[in-house]
Write a protein that binds this DNA or RNA. Sequence first.
RNA 1: GGUCACGUAGCCAAGUGGUUAGGCAGCGGUCUGCAAAACCGUCUACAGCGGUUCGAAUCCGCUCGUGACCUCCA
Length: 491
Amino acid sequence: MKNNLYIYNALNRKKEKFEPINPPFVGMYVCGPTVYGDSHLGHARPAITFDLVFRYLKHLGYKVRYVRNITDVGHLVNDADEGEDKIAKKAKLEQVEPMEIVQKYTNSYHKNMEQLNTLRPSIEPHASAHIIEQAEMAKKILENGFAYEVNGSVYFDVAKYSKKYNYGKLSGRILDDLQSNTRELEGQSEKKNPFDFALWKKAMPEHIMRWPSEWSIGFPGWHLECSVMSTKYLGDKFDIHGGGLDLQFPHHECEIAQSKAANGYDSVKYWMHNNLITLDGQKMSKSLGNFIMLDEMFSGDHELLEQAYSPQVVKFFMLQAHYRNPLDFSNKALKAAQKGLERLMNGISALDKIKPAKNSSFDVNIIKNKSYEALNDDLNTPILIAHLFDGIKKINSVIAGTETINENDLSELKALYNIMFFEILGLTNDSESSSSNGKLDDVMNLLLNLRTDAKKNKDFETSDKIRDKLNEIGITVKDKKDGFEWEIKQL
RNA sequence: GGUCACGUAGCCAAGUGGUUAGGCAGCGGUCUGCAAAACCGUCUACAGCGGUUCGAAUCCGCUCGUGACCUCCA
């Protein structure tokens, strides 16, 4: 399996050639959501980023197993090791079973991800279904001497681990700095050091999500689930581990430590992180309360939104920035993305109207090669999209008569847009379904033919009235030399 | 306070030693009954100050500004 793909590996902080451990197989694990609430804009970014990775690797011919977990236990509200479980807290609030919460928000996550046209992962494991494996891993770390038990809880001994391995190598942190900078929080007295983290927590009486173990009736620590589920389904060593940049420390750092402490090696070859979405320059976060739900984006029902933005617009907006750079949300930028996407889609539909000439006045292969170059350079979608726009300009020029294209190049170009736009970027033309309504077509043809008659009779008052009223309804009419075109406006 | 990023035209956003990124908006033109769409043209920037270099937005230093992580978050 040949490829020329370079991806940025957070472990070494540079772009590296992508060479899977066992080609043609590729294993990719991505940290999924903790399902205790509806998905917000921030959830869309890793989903879109790693969907792109998934799609491109498949396009290159790899057999990709994409595992993305559902966190439904062990993720606590306040501190990693103290406080209420997020799921349990929400369950209490909504007066339902914890697993009802899990199901409800898993469903809503799936719905949003489908709207964004991201592919389902190959396996979507739940943390709560892997309690035994998590306890086993904790035991292994304990046996290897990198953890200690206190009052039924098991903690990872970071200081001891650091003597043998490098804790902080992923996030570039130095233990001494952590030591002097970690805040002292209440209830951490059990731990030898404040930066130690829980592998197993004894459940307090009010804690309803609990399982038996040899140490206590309790629940696993948050970081353990990803170490366990990734290797269970992808093998001891696998290719790509992804997630949001905010998870780099401590979550991913702890995963590395757990793997090394248990097995003596890091399981992951390439660590990839998508950067975050900001709102007015600030990260969206629960504590600041400045986050927008995906449902609100799609409906426009939020005080910060000037209009609704379709899932495709939101996706395109994100793909126009590189995944490793922060992206600031604004109505202005979203609207620009919407216009740009329309231009791109109109151009792609226009491909079908082109009549091929004998010769081509431009080189389709250049666009094609540059598109692949962009993807191979750490999935540089902004560059890819720029080249796609260049192609659209050529397409429009052919229609305008200033460029020509031959039959062979035309089918090459069509294939290219199918691959890049639909298959790899995973964008869709969501107006297509509505325009394939036969009866509506008939009605529109009737109406617009009447308008054409009015125009012939120089009755522009009537023709403009039809066009303006249709526009109000949400249908754009475009006059052509030899007739007319109409389309249902997208949000 | 510690660690790490970033600062690119009106807005968004790539690039990262020499060559037009791209999109949106604006302006002028072509087309059109008028629009819309499209095409052609135009506007052409790299926070500031020093340094390295034949050459720097790109490398180095300092200054200013913004943000992230260090605590749950994608």
